[in-house]
Write a protein that binds this DNA or RNA. Sequence first.
DNA 1: GCCAACGTTGGC
DNA 2: GCCAACGTTGGC
Length: 147
Amino acid sequence: MKSEPSCYSIDDLKREKRGPWDGVRNYQARNFMRDDMQVGDRALFYHSNASDTGVVGEMEVASEAYPDPTQFDRKADHYDPKVTKNNPRWFLVDVSFVQKFPKTVTLHELKNDPFFKNMLLTQKGMRLSVQPVSKKHFEKILRTALS
DNA sequence: GCCAACGTTGGC
DNA sequence: GCCAACGTTGGC
């Protein structure tokens, strides 16, 4: 799950312990949260547009999917004038902090390791902000981060 | 800040 | 339904 650290970082989540992953306005990303995530699933926190772009920590899915409240909020950055309370379009899950890695596993590292060749994240033009990670990739990233 | 790669919108 | 124009993402 990607976020620009200037907007919301792993340190913000560490401080807050738990929070809604709001602001996602892409159908595919929404579908992954709404349809494929379950409470207790692990997720990776990725810093995009950062000085050190890459995976910075681990979190846990802490809620079922529910409508993103910011879509109804006229003053929110991601307000969507086309939705109504009875007909929400955007969904999110809450996430809770698990750990911040002692070192970032950078996008550069992932792209340079053939093991991650087929990972969605490393594909050209891939900018989906919420995307699935295979177990083997997830575990290798954990091992790399903690080694 | 640039810009390539996507995604969305809306005229037709 | 096509596709040009526009908006966004995100690496660099």
